[in-house]
Nucleic acid binder design. Structure first.
Lengths: 232, 232
DNA sequence: GTGGTTTTCGCCTCGTGGTCGAAAACATGC
DNA sequence: GCATGTTTTCGACCACGAGGCGAAAACCAC
């Protein structure tokens, strides 16, 4: 059992809310704790901040123990969780991250680790349930005004497939017409020139698209109060 | 001289980028370090995270040593700065906050503390210059799609005064016509019914306004991909 | 009153996005 | 082969938000 740190120092953890959408269901990667405290409950991947790394490097290092990092298409910082009573003593401060895995990736995970639908979380350890909800909220917000969908979608996809991904992540129906227009007008979606074969019941073959960039981009100097001469 | 913490624990600091606009110049509150390291350089207010407080409570506590907290109209978390070499050993991890002070407030500050225009920062300690720029960027972004102006403006003001505040914060000219229309349509600006006397060269007396809320509100379900039936 | 100044308001335009329906391109069954 | 059904794609329509501009309103000084 470890003791508290030197007076005025605290253990610093990094945590990752890794989200992935499969079959129109957004899920988060959790592992089941074997040891106290909170043995048996489900926790976010993460671990201690090491002495020679910043928090982002740290979360990538810890994540690599649970999934193939190459499958995680995007990582960003969510914030600090520091309630003195967020867990049993000794006190721990955590920096949480959001990670996204494309829907066509199916990374191998350890035996204690599994994907859980975010709408039906198991009993979570510490404040990890609240942190997960923060991550889902962040994803939902950014889908609207960034190209963050690149981190959820396969490399190539049809508009209908992308529509289903967005609908699952946002939690409401999405019009394929509108999604296609909005994303192409913003320049984040480019056609590959290929088409996908129709389903068993026929239908026009769907054109394949991909995201023009695989780095996060705010697609809009969004909202109002732009510089003069920059009417949108 | 303090030693490093127990292995795997780190001193955790909180820092505040406190911004205020006076005379069309955005400034940040800095204090001049008297002791090494970085003696003589200017640093952000802040200090150590205490054992019985979360980071937000901590930053408010430390801020209270520099300014009257009642004058700080808004505080929000910016993020974690954790580069192992962001300062000399022993390593410190910092959670940065953005704080905003209305332009009509002129809180008393200690003798080692002063406002510095953000476009002409003095030599700053550690990574506090970069953190300050992060704070300014956050303010600029949020001016567009939230009511965050309430934390920069006096309780009552004219549209022209508010226009000057926004122009100073955004760094470009702002149309009073458009600002008035955008903010009133969003319902964040309400007329007080009073008027301000014209200046020495005459002119129509300006109507006074105030912000309808003094809590941060995202005024827009901003950008695209709203639920069906929710056309704006 | 006349001219100058500042604020306020209405009108115009453009871009964005939600909605709808028609057309395109496939499959299946008769 | 042709009619029917299915899915995708595309264009048309509309509402609204926001930038630009100019006129009108309301003051001052002379």
């Amino acid at each position: 059992m470890e003791t508290g740190g030197e007076q005025g120092t605290y253990a610093h953890d990094v945590l990752a809310v890794v989200l992935r959408i499969t079959g129109s269901v957004p899920s988060v990667l959790l592992w089941q704790r074997a040891r106290e405290p909170h043995a048996g409950r489900w926790a976010l991947p993460g671990g201690r901040l090491g002495p020679d790394e910043d928090v982002e490097a740290s979360v990538r290092r810890h994540l690599a123990e649970k999934v193939d990092l190459a499958e995680v298409a995007h990582v960003e910082q969510l914030g600090v969780f520091s309630d003195p009573h967020r867990g049993p003593p000794p006190r721990r401060v955590a920096t949480a991250f959001l990670g996204l895995v494309p829907s066509d990736a199916d990374p191998a995970v350890p035996h204690d680790t599994a994907w859980h639908p975010v709408d039906a979380l198991p009993e979570t350890a510490f404040d990890h349930g609240a942190i997960t909800r923060d991550g889902v909220d962040r994803l939902r917000a950014k889908l609207s005004y960034t190209n963050i969908g690149f981190a959820l979608a396969p490399d190539a996809f049809t508009v209908s497939e992308l529509r289903d991904l967005y609908a699952a992540a946002l939690g409401h129906r999405v019009s394929a017409t509108n999604l296609h227009r909005v994303l192409t007008r913003r320049g984040v979606l480019v056609p590959t020139g290929e088409t996908a074969p129709p389903g068993p019941s026929g239908g026009r073959p769907a054109a394949m698209y991909r995201f023009s960039e695989h780095e996060l981009r705010v697609t809009d100097p969004f909202a109002a109060l732009r510089p003069p001469g920059h009417a949108v």
